[in-house]
Design a protein around this nucleic acid. Sequence first.
DNA 1: TTCGCCATGTAATTCGTTACATGATTTG
DNA 2: CAAATCATGTAACGAATTACATGGCGAA
Lengths: 165, 165
Amino acid sequence: MSLRIALLGLLTAKGPASGYDLAKRFEHSLNHVWQAGHTQIYPELVKMAADGLVTVEAEGARGRKIYAITPDGSRLLTEWLIEHDPSATIRSETALQAFLLPLLDTEQAIAVVERIKGHFEARLAVLDCQPEGQFGNYALSLGLRQMRSGREWAEETLAALRREG
Amino acid sequence: MSLRIALLGLLTAKGPASGYDLAKRFEHSLNHVWQAGHTQIYPELVKMAADGLVTVEAEGARGRKIYAITPDGSRLLTEWLIEHDPSATIRSETALQAFLLPLLDTEQAIAVVERIKGHFEARLAVLDCQPEGQFGNYALSLGLRQMRSGREWAEETLAALRREG
DNA sequence: TTCGCCATGTAATTCGTTACATGATTTG
DNA sequence: CAAATCATGTAACGAATTACATGGCGAA
């Protein structure tokens, strides 16, 4: 479902687009929120068209199809936003590594946390380059906060490990 | 892979266990980090035994099998912890709702953010009840930080929406 | 005209969820 | 003995990743 919602959202926010365009939009704006490659997007659009959520508005060169959202699609999108309880499912490899830290000796643990810290910083850097005042604004500020608190956790954990080691 | 790692980690941290036990451990300690139900765990343990990562240490009543980690399993676990670059894949329905907020009018957006805030608070409450000083310590403090920053985001966003609306 | 990127797709496989099925043990 | 919970599993389906395949178009 969420993939559909994400696609409908992008079509609403930035207008009709081809599968390729949508894959690009995913990369550039939704990347810190939801991810999908073209191999998932192309077939999903076909199914969504069959379900009446999008239509092929135009066909261009080399099979390029421009999809637009339909009223049914808009309805589904708004309904989901207003009614859907976001699932609490979390699967974070980073948090899993944090969980398992006590299995390592201090020196190894420090190395792992250093690397995790690097990851948080890298993602933070990506988000920092993101233009303010754009559509993804709210998600961007949420992402920034969570990456910053990840970095802080790493710093605090490093300090604790060094004290102890 | 991560499911395997999580299972190997639990077996190392808390000793040999059956599939059922492991499902329970997932619920109680790994829940804010990684999730898996018994339907995923049972078959995975069989495959892991076939791959020599765990062995059936004992068999009890009604087919109960107690699995223990093997040296190969330990090796794989440590290697993963030290070498594996945690994937940056994020799929958060909450963040997706945040992303799509601008599609709603102010009143609806406020309702959505209120609900999101409630979710963050609920998860925070669960983590707050978790015993300190246990194995999952590091992951717990990371989770707490991230839930708190989620709640702060919701509060700030609500304030902004109310100013504007 | 060759190289690189644009653009679209399919196939195979793995990962994860939901629904179903079964029987043992404990508690009231 | 009935009901609840313990405990193990399978099957079907859906979501996601990886690998493969193809051809167009533009620039050097």
